[in-house]
Amino acid sequence: MKIERTKKAVGVGTWYAAALLLALVFAVPFLWMFLSALKPANEIFVNPPILISSHYSLANFGRVFQQAPFGRYLFNSFVVSAVVTVAGLIFHSMSGYALARLEFPGRNFLFIGILSTLMVPFYTILIPLAVIVRHLGWMNTYWALIIPAIPHAFGIFWLRQFFLGLPRDLEDAARIDGASRVGIFLFVALPLARPVLAALAVFFFLANWDAFLWPLIATSRPEMRVVQVGIQAYTGEHGNAWELIMAASLIAILPTLFLFFLLQRFIVASARMTGLKG
């Protein structure tokens, strides 16, 4: 018994040490970015890095907002990301559920078809997509940024995989109680999918918040710019303004991290809440 406890204590100790070490590896680049955002350009690439500098200031952040309507970019990105996330969660959970739990002709065909849309690199369909969106007259509108971003096989695929793993008894019990298919989806399956939905919310938001190439191509008016295009605007003919890129990126990273921080308890808490673990 005692040996076991010591063994366990050692195990916990090693695990913490490993987790900390890994955390350090993960945090160092981030730390460098953070410090760089506070530094003048000439101190960023000094090796070994300057940690104690008399030049730390928030000036770069001020310049980010002065040189361009960065607030507007943040707003655009937020609108697009929020709408796509909400719409995506709704549509993809419906699709994922249908593919996993409902029987209908053509199910496998549809699943493979949906999956195969992930297999073409975006650069390949960029020009055709731009042609289509232009024909729709959506260039330079929120439509162009939002609508084509909603359908995406990633979320469908993941939710399908999740719903496949649900025990059938829950559904059957609800059937006997007279619940409809839609009712089971809404009141049995969806609540169980909370961890996946929470994670997907973070991912969708992140993916659209980080979207860059498509917004660049679909909009040419300065007022339609999104955050990532705004950051790329500090790349230049004769080198990039790294101090501004760092500062702008740091601002841009915060909403996603905050969202993740907020939602992660749903991602990991489900087992206890549903009592599935038995």
Binding site: L22, A23, F26, A27, P29, F30, M33, L206, D210, Q228, I231, Q232, T235, I245, M246, S249, A252, I253, T256, L257, F260
Partner: peptide
């Protein structure tokens, strides 16, 4: 561990 995911590619 999640932080790198949110970091922009350029940075």
């Amino acid at each position: 561990y999640f932080m790198p995911v949110a970091m922009s590619l350029l940075v």
